[in-house]
């Protein structure tokens, strides 16, 4: 394995189906590692990984950290609250410091779109985008695709509905890029104020009718709705959002058929998704979390260019 090399993982836009498949296949192997009594391999021994989290995040940060430790990497963490960013350091100086410290891999979460690209242009380290503003969140989409593939076996021709605030969602964008590359049909559903005007140019369809979307799809990926959207005047209220776009058992029963239910978390139960859907049949939400660690191990492993086998 490890035939395909890539220098950075900045997004899924432009990534080939071969590379995505290789990452998913590696992730399957790491998933087996994770179920061992001692879920640790020496693949990244001697490799230093810096997790730079300029925006607060719990699950992505922990998932990356766990993946790094399971691979025996040396791990350092910078988080927004403790980092020099709060002391006015620019991202350029941060980049130069990383370079000076001779870090091998940088995992970056940042509130500003394009920040991982900014770093990648300026450091020798491999850069992994752990979410940049409303641009991309490639490892999340990879774990979503892995979860779908494990559930359905084949991705080609599958229909995925992405439900919610598309405009502000990096998860949506990365999913759209990755799913389209893998031959999946994508439709998005949400209020017109949270869907960018020219989104169809990405090669997807739009509906504002939840049940129409549900009727069409095999998989529904529910996105988190932020309370801020109400204050920004983009939706009248969370209550009205829930009324039109909250996923309930009733909706699923009315359209019938089995749907795979996904959510990148953290969930607003009772708003974008009801508890009996999140915890009910068809929900793969917790599997997504497990797959997240495996996918991140795969990305770290492939990006580090190490030749050791996983076994």
């Amino acid at each position: 394995m490890n035939k395909i090399r890539f220098n950075h993982l900045l997004g899924l836009e432009g990534l080939s189906s071969e590379v995505i498949t290789e990452i998913l296949d590696s992730a399957e192997a790491f998933l087996k590692v994770l179920s061992r009594p001692i879920p640790r391999v020496p693949s990244l021994r001697g490799v230093t990984v810096a997790n730079l989290f300029f925006e607060s995040s719990t699950r992505t940060r922990i998932s990356f950290e766990l993946a790094e430790k399971r691979l025996s990497a040396d791990v350092v963490n910078f988080t927004a609250s403790s980092s020099s960013m709060n002391k006015g350091e620019t991202i350029l100086d941060t980049a130069r410091n990383i370079e000076a410290m001779k870090v091998d891999v940088v995992v970056i979460r940042h509130f500003a779109q394009g920040s991982p690209h900014f770093l990648a242009d300026r450091v020798n380290a491999a850069v992994i985008n752990a979410g940049d503003g409303s641009h991309e969140h490639p490892t999340q989409a990879l774990l979503d695709i892995m979860t779908i593939r494990r559930k359905t076996g084949d991705l080609k021709g599958l229909k995925v509905l992405i439900l919610g605030d598309i405009a502000h969602s990096r998860v949506a964008r990365s999913n759209i890029y990755g799913l389209l590359t893998m031959g999946v049909n994508v439709k998005i559903c949400g209020p017109s104020t949270l869907i960018p005007r020219e989104i169809e140019s990405m090669g997807i369809e739009v509906t504002h009718d939840l049940e129409e979307g549900l009727d069409w799809c095999d998989v529904v990926n529910v996105l988190r709705i932020q309370l801020e959207r109400q204050n920004e005047g983009l939706i009248p209220s969370l209550r009205e959002y829930q009324r039109s776009f909250g996923l309930t058992r009733n909706h699923l029963e009315r359209v019938g058929g089995e749907k795979i239910i996904m959510h990148p978390g953290p969930m607003n139960r009772g708003v974008e998704i009801d508890s009996d859907v999140a915890d009910g049949p068809g929900s793969v939400i917790l599997s997504q979390v497990t797959h997240g660690v495996a996918v991140r191990m795969a990305v770290l492993y492939l990006i580090s260019g190490r030749e050791q086998s996983i076994e």
Binding site: E13, G114, G133, R173, E198, I199, S201, M202
Partner: peptide
């Protein structure tokens, strides 16, 4: 500019 490119990049239009 708000359009297809800003949509792809996730940048405010």
């Amino acid at each position: 500019h708000e359009g297809a490119v800003s949509t792809r990049l996730g940048l405010p239009g």
